[in-house]
Structure formats: C-alpha cells, structure tokens
Amino acid sequence: MKQYSIVLALSLTLISSLMTAQTASSKIIEDFKPSVLNQPGKEFPQVNSQGYARFRIEAPAADSIIVSLGLGGKKGGTKLSKGADGVWTGTTAGPMDEGFHYYHVNVDGGTFNDPGALNFYGSVRWESGIEIPAHDQDFYALKSVAHGNVQQILFPSKSTNTSRRAFVYTPPGYEKEQSKRYPVLYLQHGWGEDETAWSNQGHANLIMDNLIAEEKIKPFIIVMTYGMTNEIKFGGLKNFDITPFQTVMVDELIPYVDANFRTVAKQSYRAMAGLSMGGMETRMITLKKTDVFSHYALLSGGLYNPEDIKDKSKVKLIFLSCGSKENPDGVKKSATALKNAGFNAVSYVSEGTAHEFQTWRRSLKELAPLLFKE
C-alpha cells in the first residue's frame, strides 16, 4: 500500500461541492471556527454554530478519503471530495450532537489520525477528537476559580504482578487543610478507553472545581483507574470476568488510596460509578461488595432491580442516567421501582445526546451534589 503524506486543514471559503450532501431544507451557516481540540496553531478541522464539522485534507495521490464521524449521510462516515489541486474537502451532512466525539480518517483503506487535532484514548486506540460547542458547556469550562489537582499514582498489585496506574483528583485546599479528610468516588471509564478518559474527555476535574466554587457540592476525592476491559472484543461482554478487576479495585487500589490520601475510610463515605462498560463493572462490584460502597451510579451502564440488592440499609444512593437517544424509559422505570421499594434512587436523562461524553459530563454534574450529603 502506498504511503501518503496527510495534512489536515479546514477550508475558509465556501466550496460548492461541500453542499451536495446537505438536505434541501438545511442551509449551512458559514461561521466555522477551529475546534477547541485542535493542535496548537492548527486551523482544521472546524465546526460551526449549528454543529456541522468541516475538513480539508491534502493528499494528492489518494483515491478515497472518509472521515469516520459517521454523520456523512452514508454508511461509513463523511466522504470527502477531491479538488483539482489534490485537496480533499467535506462537511458532515448534518449537525452533530453537542460535546466530544472521537474520529479518524480512512485514506484508501488505511486508518490515520488527524495531525491537526489532539488525540484521546478511545476505541482501544488513540483517536482524534473534536468538540462541538454545547449550549450548557459553562459547567465544564476552565474558569478563574480555585482548582484541584489531578495526579498520577502507581500502586502495587500482587494479583497482576505489577504496578498499576490510577489518576486521583483532590479538591482545592486539599494540600493546605492537613486535618481534613474526604469521601471518595471511584469513577470508571467505558470500553475502549482507559484511566485518562474522565479527565481528558470528561473534564471531571473542571466539573468538580466549578461545582465546589459555586458551593453546590461538598468536596470529595475522585479515583480513576483502568478497568481491565479492553481485552474483551466489542460485543463479547458475556465473556467478561469481573473477578480480576474486582480484586485490583477492592483489595489493592482502595487500601492504597486510604493509606496514602486523607480519606474517610468507611463504606458510608465511598462511592462507585462508571459509564457504559464501567457502569457494568460498577453494578457487578457494588452488588457483590455491599460492605465497600454505599453510593452507586450507572451512567449509560445498565440498571438495578430492587430484588438485586439484598441489604437495603447499606445503600445510601442509586443514581441511573443515560442520553435521551438511549434508554430513557428504562432508566426512569428502574428508578421508580427502586423508589417504590424504599431506596433513595434518582434518574437523570441528558436531553439530545446518545452514548457519548456529553451525556456523561452532564451525568457527573447531576450526580456530584447527591453524593455524601450526610
């Protein structure tokens, strides 16, 4: 296969060939700006106020280029058109959901990342990322407020015969208030991602900083570690064994965190949450380890039934969420059934989003004020 030198850029002029994919009833507003997730100094790709994304790729020798956003109106993504100068251009056929999206570029069957965009670990590889500005993005914006700290830790794991990595968010003031102890939320990523996801794609630290600054939550620590999920191929969840990760989480990571951070090392001050497959892990572990966690949260990650939980007295909160394009009825019905059975259960549906990070950012914003209220 030929090797192509690929440089991605965004066309600043209106190109008539880009309009062919648009519906007759839709008109693109030409107010495109570089994505906030572009590499420093790179103008491409760009997004507009309607949520369209536009791409420009210099690859004179290529025969076919497709951007894998999946919104091109045809199966396989957004097909780009080649100009006489060897530059490929294209715009998504419709607006994308607000928030963060992974993507990559297929050039004659080969998979490449966009050199104009920052990379994020997802789909079991480093993917390019693009951000569609959201109407409610203020809650995860970088503001002039006191900021917490996200640090990498390496903790010993006898069960896996290695040191493992986690990222720990400590709230503003943690370093100064040496006598204060904090509850802990163990927050899990989804399939194809790793322990960097909640900080990089999810902006969990900024969400926390802003909520704390607004005095909407009591400060707590967040711990994010790899869920040992990516060895399972997509669609093969029936083969996933929770036991190895449960051992790492309960017997190795939690004791390490309690020994090295100022935590309140009690079940009533410990929560577990996860998105997608991380939610599945959360469900499995919390049902087995009721003496370890008291607050449970599944973000697009399944449901609890009242009969699943044997000791109601040990559960302080059950939080269930998803996007409105996922399973909102199921989430609401499950929460209602749990409430009727006497549980403190809360449901949340992110309007206009699907199985994506804007759903989970919003979910964390709704979840955080409910945690550790007593």
Rank of each mutant, 00 (worst) to 15 (best):
K2R: 06
Y4H: 04
S5A: 10
S5T: 11
I6K: 01
S11P: 13
L12Y: 15
L12H: 15
I15A: 13
T20I: 07
S26N: 15
I28A: 12
P34I: 02
N38P: 13
P40A: 08
P40G: 05
E43F: 13
F44W: 14
Q46N: 12
V47Q: 03
S49F: 08
Q50P: 00
Y52L: 08
Y52M: 10
A53V: 15
R54K: 14
R54N: 07
R56G: 14
A59N: 00
A61Q: 09
A62R: 01
A62V: 08
S64M: 09
G70W: 03
L71K: 06
L80H: 01
K82S: 01
A84G: 02
W88Q: 11
W88C: 05
T92I: 12
A93K: 00
P95D: 08
Y102T: 01
D108Y: 03
D108L: 05
T111F: 06
F112M: 03
D114W: 03
N119R: 10
S123N: 14
V124T: 03
G129I: 04
I132Q: 09
A134I: 07
H135W: 09
H135E: 13
Q137L: 02
D138W: 11
V150M: 05
Q152G: 02
I153F: 02
P156I: 03
P156M: 00
S159W: 05
T160N: 08
S163A: 00
R164W: 00
F167M: 03
V168I: 14
V168F: 01
Y169S: 00
Y174M: 02
K176S: 00
S179F: 01
Y182H: 02
Y182L: 04
L185R: 09
L187H: 11
Q188I: 15
G190H: 10
W191C: 06
E193R: 14
D194I: 13
D194F: 11
D194A: 12
E195L: 14
T196Q: 13
S199W: 15
H203V: 12
E214D: 07
P219I: 04
F220S: 11
I221M: 12
T225Y: 08
G227Y: 09
M228A: 15
M228H: 14
T229W: 00
T229C: 04
T229K: 04
K233G: 02
F234Y: 14
G236H: 10
N239Y: 10
N239A: 11
N239V: 08
F240I: 10
P244G: 10
F245A: 09
T247F: 05
L253E: 01
Y256C: 06
T263L: 08
K266Y: 00
T286R: 06
K288M: 09
T290M: 15
D291S: 13
H295S: 09
Y296K: 12
A297C: 08
Y304V: 10
N305Q: 15
P306H: 04
D308E: 15
D311P: 06
K312W: 12
K316F: 08
L317Y: 05
L317R: 09
G323L: 05
N327E: 03
S334P: 09
T336A: 12
A337S: 14
A341Y: 15
N344T: 10
E351R: 03
K365R: 09
A368D: 01
F372Y: 15
